[in-house]
Design a protein around this nucleic acid. Structure first.
Lengths: 144, 144, 144, 144
DNA sequence: TTTT
DNA sequence: TTTT
């Protein structure tokens, strides 16, 4: 069955990256998608939706290095709702997007673009070489 | 910005359809997407994810008529997280998929297929004619 | 960069599967997506679009076993335009969808559903076990 | 049935916009999506795929104003293969993506971002107001 | 709560 | 050439 999410938006705050046992990294961050429309009174309105993004392993490492508050991002992943007990022992539910593919868009100082990263399509060696290649490109002078 | 969800799965229970003031119908139902995999011990495992689907207006009416417990469905829509106060006055959050397009897949008794419905791409007259056409097809004898 | 195609439609004719050197299987088939609309004169019209689908390796083997003329299918893949010289030595171009994920929908005699297959997300052992599992399910008696 | 294409890439040359009878504008341009990978010899390789994009009416007008050679773009649309006779009277086929939604990504001089445009979801008045709003934003100083 |  |  198919469970697919595609987002293009901006990162709300610098990602948090944690490492669990066996050193598996996981990155969490929030991302906004906004839509603007003109209401019945002719007034411009903006609706902003916030999404919880989770990235594991190689993608988490790429997030750690390249994704920052304000980054414009393409994210493809799947929906997952999980529960947890809050500080008062109350069961809470949160829906997250577990990222499979990510692409940095646009351009800011220190950011790169035009590469996408997929979990599971590349082993860590390949990811490392991708990251190296990107860092090497960091000073390039592409027309776009 | 882009906020898009694509699901193919099965409906968990008959949809609930309510009508608000000005008679706007809204349909709510739950839909499952399952993925199966073989774990490290070689045992087949299934993960099921449940999604809250919301459909408005013309799409709600189509849901009311054609979507049932067990229906196999393609849903395209956007993520929206809303909050509400539960019976104890505690603020709760729920993430829903607001459907834009829907397609009945496969076939069960009383179900039809191969038509998709989009909110906003068809006026109510067109929706009505689609529905009529489907009802007219309702007695056919397709191979699936 | 992102190059993604998502189709839900029907297969026009039984797939052709060939094997190249080193025994890599490749499956080719055509798939139709139709849309119906009511024209300005109120007459129901149908537009059918035909797509060339290509599947490699494990996906090709699954196509060979399960996809038939008339199968209802979900296909996710990427666009690729390639050129070839026709019988008269004239250069021709053809655009194909190289499949990454596939899901059999609906149901016909001898067909199964609710499993999706991805190239590159499963090694050949896992694909084999998926196929085995499906074959084992082959005699069930589901409502659709 | 579902016929959907999602692309994120760069525009290869300035779009051509023509106007037919009844003044319906149509924009045509080419867009590249590239993927890079490391081959068996450990050498970095790039595959670039070129796509023919078509946009009609309001979307064509937005293309005319904002899309340029080098623009980074999100395009959502559907596949359509059409035939034509070339200068020698030989029948040719070309597969195009008819755009439904478009979003300018990244940022260059004279470009804007964070708005997406859909054909059919907005009437021409709404499109005009969107365009006005964008032009008004043209000198802004957004953090991203 | 679906489905396989 | 599919499907409705």
């Amino acid at each position: 069955m198919i469970n697919k999410v595609i987002l293009v938006g901006n990162v709300g705050a610098d990602p948090e990256v944690r490492r669990f046992d066996s050193n598996t990294p996981v990155a969490n961050f929030r991302m906004a998608t906004s839509e603007t429309y003109t209401d019945k009174q002719g007034v411009r309105q903006t609706n902003t939706e916030w999404h919880n993004i989770v990235a594991w392993r190689g993608l988490a490492e790429i997030v750690e290095k390249y994704v920052k508050k304000g980054s414009q991002l393409y994210v493809e992943g799947r929906l997952r709702t999980r529960s947890y007990d809050d500080a008062n022992g109350v069961k809470k539910y949160v829906t997250e997007i577990v990222a499979d593919t990510m692409k940095l868009l646009g351009r800011r100082e220190g950011e790169n673009q035009n590469d996408s990263y997929s979990y599971g399509q590349a082993n860590s060696a390949a990811i490392t070489s991708q990251v190296d290649a990107i860092e090497a490109e960091g000073s390039d002078d592409l027309p776009f």
